[in-house]
């Protein structure tokens, strides 16, 4: 019983996952960047050799920098989750600012403050862009949602069971998208979670349908 519960709590283990993921991104991105740079700066006839040499010299360094940044960011993010006991975009923004400030601390408080501000602004832009993308992508789903809403409001009791069914779908899509980037073992675990979640969702739907008759009665009285 404790094992699946702890497996769902990502925070302590996520730090190691993020270090590996950040190193991977830095190493691959750095390899591409420095290969092109080395190729451009090499004379004709030695471009491939120059590109390969530049990659061998610089890719590990870039990967290491990304790993340090990713690890610190994840550690601060988990700290914020523990302190606030809630997960929302503010955690990422504060973690980004803390990471920037921490990495520049030995250059003095002024430089650390400026780096923290830059980190916070960067994460704010990233979170803002993510929220806007989510909103834009979520625009089509409300169209079918509005249709059952209108008859629900108009019809009354008949359409009420349709309302709770709609929010169940988004978490499944989100969980499936999240599962795509998981580990092999975690993928297996997530599949089990999805299987468990779906029957609980069905049960919750039944329970909601059982309890929702009490909700419209007060609204009816209000009208």
């Amino acid at each position: 019983m404790g094992t699946p519960e702890t497996s769902r709590e990502p925070c302590p283990d996520r730090i190691l996952d993020d270090v590996g993921g950040a190193f991977g991104m830095g190493a691959v991105g750095g390899s591409l960047f420095h290969f092109l740079k080395g190729t451009y700066n090499s004379p004709n006839g030695e471009r491939l050799v120059g590109g390969a040499q530049a990659v061998r010299m610089n890719a590990p360094r870039v990967g290491g920098s990304f790993a340090v940044w990713g690890g610190l960011f994840s550690a601060f993010d988990c700290t914020m989750v523990f302190m606030r006991q809630k997960e929302d975009p503010w955690n990422s923004i504060i973690a980004g600012a803390a990471t920037g400030g921490f990495l520049s601390m030995r250059q003095g408080p002024g430089a650390a403050g400026r780096s923290a501000l830059m980190g916070g602004m960067l994460l704010a832009l990233i979170e803002g862009a993510g929220l806007m993308l989510n909103r834009v992508l979520a625009t089509p789903p409300p169209l079918p949602v509005d249709d059952p809403n209108l008859p629900a409001v108009m019809g009354g009791g008949g359409g009420i069971p349709g309302i709770p069914q709609v929010p169940v779908a988004p978490p499944e899509v989100a969980s499936s998208s999240g599962g795509g980037s998981g580990w092999f073992g975690s993928l297996f675990g997530k599949k089990e979670e999805e299987k468990k979640a779906s029957p609980s969702g069905g049960k919750s739907e039944m329970l909601e349908s059982f309890d929702t008759p009490s909700t419209p009665i007060p609204t009816f009285e209000y009208k």
Binding site: R8, P10, K86, A174, S181
Partner: peptide, 14 residues
Amino acid sequence: TGYGNESRNRAARQ
């Protein structure tokens, strides 16, 4: 603790 989704992805959980 409250979160949005059962997932290891930070963005999905938020």
